[in-house]
Structure formats: structure tokens, C-alpha cells
């Protein structure tokens, strides 16, 4: 595959993770997670057999589906759109993460055998996930932040190691984290009708 094609999943990662920061609407958030896992699959399929790499995509999308189903079932009201200043603050934070990821990737690539674009994508996802986790108390967004960090880690770890057991257990953890999110959402009482 031509080198330039790797910029497509990198673009998906950047767009997906920034949109996670920009909006609180769960539909867009789940869509962003789906995009991120597509990018993860793209990168992992270059170093792992396609069948094994597909586990990442299936697990990631299943996690998204579980969360989406749970939000729908819990009948939660749509979260209020945050103020424009808050959104700008988050995106500025996101841009700092992007700058950090682009600058740190060449050094990191010296000791982890991953492609440059994969490394950048991985660092972007880890950084954006941590940023997300540090700025929220909402269970759904916490879970989305954790999934983002884990997906970023999966890209570089796949470049470092190929193992069926690790692939299976990481998929289990991904789905487990999303099930935890679904469980937490089911505990949140719906708002009293006014």
C-alpha cells in the first residue's frame, strides 16, 4: 500500500478525536469512536494478518454499538450543548495534543518499530483520550475517553507484538469497558419530567 494512503486513517483519527472533544451529542461521539476503530484496523492490518486485525474493528464497533444501545435504552435526555467558550477551550487543548503528538512521534519511532503515521495516530489518540478523561465527570464520556486511549495504544502495540492471545484479551477488555459504561448508564436515573 502506498505510503500516502496512511494519511487517510490519520485524518480519521484527528477528525474523530477532535469531534469527541467538540460535541457532547452521543450519536456523534459513537460515530467518532467508530471512525477511530476503522483507523486502528487500517494501521493494524498493515502489520498483522487481516483476520487478526479485524478483531480490533469488530471489538471497537461492538463497543460503540453496546454504548449506543445502552444510551437509547436508558432513555437519557440529550446532554446540553456546552458553551462555545468551553468547546473552544477543549479544541485548543486538542490542538496542543496534536502538536505534541506530531513533535514526539519521530523520537518515539526510534524505539518502537511503527510507521510514522501510525505512531502519530497512536499518540494523538492516547493524548486526546487522556485530555477527555481529565475534563469530564460524565460516565459515557469517561468510557469514550478510555476507549480512545486503549485504541491508540493498540496501534503501537500491534506494531511491537503479534499475539492471538493479546488480540483476544484486548478485544475482551475493549468490550468489557464498554459493557461497564453501558452498566453505568443503566444506573443513571432518567430526569424527572417537569
Amino acid at each position: 500500500m502506498a505510503e500516502w494512503t496512511n494519511f487517510i486513517p490519520l485524518g480519521l483519527v484527528v477528525v474523530g478525536s477532535l469531534s469527541l472533544l467538540w460535541t457532547n451529542k452521543w450519536r456523534y461521539n459513537i460515530g467518532s469512536i467508530a471512525l477511530q476503530y476503522l483507523a486502528v484496523f487500517w494501521f493494524v492490518s498493515q502489520v498483522w494478518p487481516i483476520g487478526l486485525a479485524a478483531i480490533k474493528l469488530v471489538a471497537g464497533w461492538m463497543a460503540g454499538a453496546v454504548l449506543a444501545a445502552s444510551v437509547t435504552a436508558s432513555d437519557l435526555p440529550e446532554t446540553e450543548t456546552p458553551a462555545m467558550s468551553a468547546r473552544i477551550f477543549r479544541v485548543v487543548g486538542g490542538v496542543f495534543v496534536l502538536i505534541l503528538a506530531f513533535s514526539a512521534a519521530p523520537q518515539a519511532a526510534e524505539w518502537i518499530p511503527a510507521q510514522q503515521t501510525a505512531m502519530i495516530s497512536s499518540l494523538v489518540l492516547i493524548g486526546m483520550g487522556l485530555l477527555q478523561l481529565s475534563m469530564t465527570k460524565d460516565p459515557l464520556r469517561v468510557i469514550l475517553g478510555l476507549l480512545t486511549v486503549l485504541s491508540g495504544f493498540e496501534i503501537i502495540y500491534a506494531a511491537a507484538l503479534t499475539s492471538v492471545l493479546v488480540a483476544g484479551l484486548l478485544a475482551l477488555v475493549t468490550i468489557g469497558v464498554s459493557l461497564t459504561g453501558a452498566y453505568w448508564l443503566s444506573l443513571t436515573p432518567p430526569e424527572e419530567p417537569s
Binding site: I126, L133, L146, V149, F153, Y157, V177, T180
Partner: peptide, 10 residues
């Protein structure tokens, strides 16, 4: 708790 325990995995 979940965040810190999960961050330990990577």
C-alpha cells in the same frame, strides 16, 4: 478507579 486501573494496562 476504573480510569487508573485501565491506564495501567498499556
Amino acid at each position: 478507579y476504573l480510569i487508573f486501573q485501565t491506564l495501567a494496562v498499556p
